[in-house]
Simulated scan of single mutants.
Amino acid sequence: MGKHKPIYDPSSDCGDYVVVINAKHVGVTGRKREQKLYRHHTGFPGGLKEATMEQLQQKNPEKIVEKAVSGMLPKNRLRQVRMGRLLVFPDGEHPYADNIMKRYDTKIPLVTQPID
């Protein structure tokens, strides 16, 4: 949001970009991988589409993180602006490695298991 900046204004988004890497290694507890459903509607009659988390992770792993973050943001006009500042990559490789000023994964032990 940019609350740490001196130019902060609640009606405008002056925040920073966020880069999320390794989206295909997202871990969940329990049976969420098989039971959690992601739904969207195409707009046509009978156009409700459903996919489990496991199917979505194989097809488009970035969508899982994007939908989770989007659900946590306030539902207002700044939501799309803030989502535009979220950059999600399925692997550890991304073109913004030189621009990152602060890393948050140095204190968290990363235990990931690759998906078969």
Rank of each mutant, 00 (worst) to 15 (best):
R77C: 00
E93Y: 07
H40V: 06
L87W: 02
E62P: 01
N99Y: 11
Q57K: 07
G30N: 05
H94C: 01
V69W: 03
G43K: 03
V28K: 10
V88R: 06
P95W: 03
G71N: 12
L87R: 15
I100V: 15
R39E: 08
H41L: 05
V65D: 06
M101K: 14
P61E: 08
H25N: 15
E54Q: 14
V28W: 09
A51F: 04
L86K: 15
L56S: 08
H25M: 13
A97W: 01
E34Q: 14
G92Q: 09
K49H: 09
M72K: 11
E54D: 13
G30M: 02
M83N: 10
Y38D: 02
F89R: 04
K59I: 05
P45G: 10
N76C: 07
T52D: 02
K32M: 15
Y96Q: 09
Q80D: 13
R77H: 03
V81S: 09
G71K: 12
E93Q: 14
N60P: 02
P45L: 03
R39F: 04
V81W: 05
M101S: 12
N76Y: 06
S70I: 05
Q80S: 11
K32H: 12
D98F: 11
A51H: 10
A68D: 06
P45Q: 06
R79S: 08
L37C: 05
R85M: 05
L78S: 06
H41R: 08
Y38V: 05
G92F: 01
P61A: 00
G84W: 05
K75H: 11
P90M: 01
Y38W: 04
Q35T: 15
M83Q: 11
K59L: 10
